[in-house]
Each structure stands twice: as structure tokens, then as C-alpha cells.
Measured scan of single mutants.
Amino acid sequence: RKEMTAACTPRRRIINLTSVLSLQEEINEQGHEVLREMLHNHSFVGCVNPQWALAQHQTKLYLLNTTKLSEELFYQILIYDFANFGVLRLSEPAPLFDLAMLALDSPESGWTEEDGPKEGLAEYIVEFLKKKAEMLADYFSLEIDEEGNLIGLPLLIDNYVPPLEGLPIFILRLATEVNWDEEKECFESLSKECAMFYSIRKQYISEESTLSGQQSEVPGSIPNSWKWTVEHIVYKALRSHILPPKHFTEDGNILQLANLPDLYKVFERC
């Protein structure tokens, strides 16, 4: 597991931080080997919608929660590849102030007048994250320049770009939802926020969305749709870069829909 690298990086740093090793061990302890084997050997059937997909393993048909699986995938990559990410360069710098204002204007932020003026909160978020810029760049390849612009994001899987519609809320939550006081809790909560931002979430995906850094293989055609990215990038990574937690067998994120021999018997009677 320590050699797990989802995106190509030129050289690998050895990380011996106790906090990170502890988080890696927790993933191992909570892992479910049968689910790992199923995901490793599954045959992708198709997307139901951005949140759900169908896959077959041996004779069984499964309904998989793409949102939760991708979130767990990105969390584990962030923990196992800690401080070893490439950088996704933004085509132009994104001012943190503008991103924070967009987030505060969104109902998702939960902002009320009692929280104070949005401009003041946005300025605080910019200054707060600028103070964390060195650590964010060093460990997470999340790059913020001296003017308070976001200029780079971590490359977690080759050819995958997170849904940038979720970027404003991500920046807001970096400042408000991460435990910045304790090292282990900081790395864990920061990785979880980043994983949620990178995950496939239906509120940020339309039929026209593209999450891939590449064009489709047909010359002159439109960019790959999110469905292509889910199948050929995300579920491909799920084959080798995730140890599913045991609770996925109990919380409805992986559901067995049918045993195909039983279905064949039904059709034979028709």
C-alpha cells in the first residue's frame, strides 16, 4: 500500500510523520478485503446518474454509490500519497476573496446577518489561508500566491479535474471546517474536505460537464463527458487505489441488486 500512486510524480518523498502513518493504519484496520476484491475485478455496466452506477462482479449485479466511493478513493490517495502530488495549474489565478464571496452568497454556506458582513468574512478567509499557504503547498500541492490567488490544485489521478463549480464552497470550508490546531486532526479533516471537493457530486455535474483533463479519443470531437470520466478514470482507479471500509457493506453505498443465475431462471419461465 505504501507504493500506491494514482498520479505520476517525478520522485517520491518518504513521509514518516506519526500522524500520517496513524491515518494510514486506520484505513488498513477499517478495510474490507472482500469489497476490495469485488472492486478490483468488477465489470463496469454503466452510470445511472452522477451519484449511482451499476457494476457486475462474477454472477452478481451491484449498485454502487459513485459519490461515496470516489470520496473515499480521493481521501485514501491523499493519505497514502501525502506530500507526493503533482499540481493542476489553473488556467488563470482565482482570487480567494472572490471565491469566498461566491460561497457566502450560496445558501449552502449557511451565512446569516449575525455572522457579520460577507466582505469582512471573505477578507478573513483570504488572510487565514495565506498564512497556511506554505503547508498547503508542501503537503497538498494546493498553491496560493502572495496576492491571495489560488493558482494550483493537487493532481490526485492523472487526467482528472475536480468539478470546479464546487471550488468556492471548498475554499470556505478549508477556513471553517478544518481542525487547524492538532496535526493528525488537521491532516485528516483537510484531506476529507479535499476528497469531498474532488468527489463526483450530482449538484455540480450536468450532462455537459467534463471532468477530464483530456479530449476524447476521436479527433475533432467534444470533450469527454462526465460519464466517460466516471467509467474510464474514476472506476479504473477504484480497481487498484481503494481499500473500501467495512461500513460500506452496511450503509447502502454498495448494494447487491441481483444474482444473475437467479434472473436467468426467471427469464426461462417467461
Rank of each mutant, 00 (worst) to 15 (best):
G152V: 01
S199N: 01
C47W: 08
N28P: 11
Q76P: 00
P219I: 09
A83S: 05
S216C: 07
Q58A: 06
I79C: 06
Y62M: 09
T5W: 15
S240H: 11
R13L: 15
F85E: 11
L260W: 07
W226P: 06
T66K: 00
V266P: 15
Y139R: 07
C270M: 15
P107M: 09
G252R: 09
L69W: 13
P245G: 11
L136K: 01
S22V: 11
V178F: 01
I157G: 01
C47T: 09
Y139S: 06
L255F: 12
I151V: 06
A103W: 15
G252E: 10
L23Y: 15
I27P: 15
T176D: 01
Q215F: 12
T112R: 12
G86I: 13
L167Y: 00
V45H: 02
D158V: 06
G152I: 00
W228T: 09
T9R: 08
I144A: 01
G148F: 06
V218D: 08
E143I: 09
D158Q: 06
L21V: 04
Q256E: 09
E29T: 10
M38K: 10
L88Y: 08
I144W: 01
Q51F: 05
I157Y: 07
V20R: 07
W52L: 08
L164F: 07
Y160A: 01
C194H: 07
F85V: 09
K184W: 13
E108Y: 09
L23D: 15
Q215C: 05
L156Q: 00
E37P: 11
E119W: 15
A103H: 04
F128Y: 07
N259G: 08
T210D: 07
R239A: 12
P245W: 15
R89I: 14
E33D: 09
L190W: 14
L153W: 00
L142I: 03
L63V: 07
L243Q: 12
F197E: 00
E165T: 04
V234I: 05
N28L: 13
I125F: 02
L243M: 13
T59K: 06
I171L: 12
S141I: 04
E182A: 04
P93V: 10
L164Y: 04
Q203T: 06
G120E: 02
K246M: 13
V218H: 08
D138K: 02
A122S: 10
Y198L: 04
I171C: 05
T66L: 03
H247I: 13
E37A: 09
I144G: 01
Y204C: 08
D115I: 15
T112M: 15
S43N: 06
N65T: 00
S22E: 13
E143A: 07
G152N: 08
D105W: 14
V218C: 10
L35E: 12
E183K: 02
F197P: 00
H57N: 13
P154V: 00
V34R: 12
R173I: 00
L172R: 01
S221L: 11
K184V: 10
S212T: 12
T112I: 13
I169M: 14
Q51L: 13
K227Q: 06
E231K: 13
L164W: 04
L255H: 07
N179D: 05
A83E: 11
S212M: 13
R269D: 11
L90I: 04
D158T: 06
H42Q: 08
Q76A: 13
Q58G: 11
C8W: 12
N259C: 06
S91L: 11
E165C: 07
K265P: 10
C186I: 02
L99D: 00
K68V: 08
